[in-house]
């Protein structure tokens, strides 16, 4: 763990709680799939919590994020509520997108989440555009573009980095580098260094441990401040790991990823366990207090699931609503 001054106990506990909330959300979403209660497939972000939370805790609701197909964590970390999220996953009227988007398209306008995206790399232009508009309108807002290591193969990234660097846009490109592009190791399909690619545009870039929520948060706070002063853009390459398969249906995956590797990450590099230990070591929280956080978050998630299962589907008349702005 990075040595952060023990300045704000509340912030630390909120970061811990937010990571636990993401894990609880994902466990319940997975259960909904396994019990055939969820339409379609979904991509779990368990294991990657420290990236989403470390970054989003350094942002205000006015700051924008763009998310990915593996987007539940970003959404929770940016302040979303469980009920409206589970309703969205189940295609219900009270979902964040009235059931129209589902897991891969959750957006939460109220908290500055411009949306998950089912096109790999599809949000790179959007995030950069949000940074352009922040600069034009002098809002002081920053945009964070989350994407995976696989997405660095999309040419769009290189086009928008060029413009962001040319025009000094307040955007942070955050690569959640979990080592895999679907069912293929990314190092088998990526040449050279990802960080060097951003550096080639003159973009200040950082490689860091994405399992260390404090390190992620510290760096993000600094970069966000500098973005607000017009020193952006930046690139963060965050080494992390996804615990589940590519999506909930990807269960037999030993042909591309060894069980040993998975258990190694889970047992030694879990962002929640390790941060919990640090909190205890620094006497910020006791074991019992952490257990209590876990229990109450689990309860909240289960109640939200029960609520969403009973909630109404949108009326069929909504089908052609929202195609155009009224």
């Amino acid at each position: 763990m990075a040595k952060a001054a023990k300045t704000n106990t509340e912030d630390y506990l909120r970061m811990y709680t937010q990571m636990v909330r993401i894990r609880a959300f994902e466990d319940n979403a997975n259960q909904l799939y396994l019990s055939a209660k969820m339409p379609g497939l979904t991509h779990m972000s368990s294991g990657q919590e420290a990236v989403a939370v470390g970054i989003c805790e350094a942002l205000t609701p006015e700051d924008k994020i763009t998310s990915t197909h593996r987007g539940h964590g970003h959404c929770v970390a940016k302040g979303a509520e469980f009920k409206a999220m589970f309703c969205e996953l189940l295609g219900k009227e009270e979902g964040y997108c009235r059931g129209k988007g589902g897991s891969m398209h959750i957006a939460d306008q109220s908290n500055g989440n411009l949306g998950a995206n089912a096109i790999v790399g599809g949000s790179m232009g959007i995030a950069t555009g949000a940074a352009l508009s922040a600069k034009m309108q002098k809002t002081g807002a920053v945009a964070v573009c989350f994407f995976g290591d696989g997405a660095t193969a999309q040419g769009l990234w290189y086009e928008v980095m060029n413009m962001a660097a040319l025009w000094g846009l307040p955007v942070i490109y955050a690569c959640e580098n979990n080592g895999y592009s679907e069912y293929t190791r990314t190092d088998e399909i990526a040449a050279g260094s990802i960080t060097a690619r951003a550096e080639a545009f003159g973009i200040e870039s950082y490689d860091l441990d994405g399992q260390d929520v404090l390190a992620v948060n510290d760096l993000t706070q600094k970069l966000v401040e500098r973005c607000r002063k017009g020193e952006g853009p930046f690139f963060m390459n965050l080494k992390t790991y996804r615990y589940h398969g590519h999506h909930v249906g990807d269960i037999n995956r030993e042909y591309y990823r060894a069980k040993d590797e998975e258990s190694e990450w889970k047992t030694t590099r879990d962002p929640i366990t390790n941060f919990g230990k640090w909190l205890e070591g620094e006497k910020i929280a006791t074991t019992d207090e952490l257990i209590e956080i876990n229990n109450s978050v689990r309860k909240e998630a289960e109640e939200a699931v029960a609520y969403a299962l009973e909630a109404k589907y949108p009326d069929v008349s909504e089908v052609d609503m929202h195609v155009y702005v009224a």
């Binding site: 129209k100 589907y313 195609v323």
Partner: peptide, 9 residues
């Protein structure tokens, strides 16, 4: 219309 996610739609 864009294809909606909700099975009901």
């Amino acid at each position: 219309v864009p294809v909606p996610f909700s099975p009901a739609l």
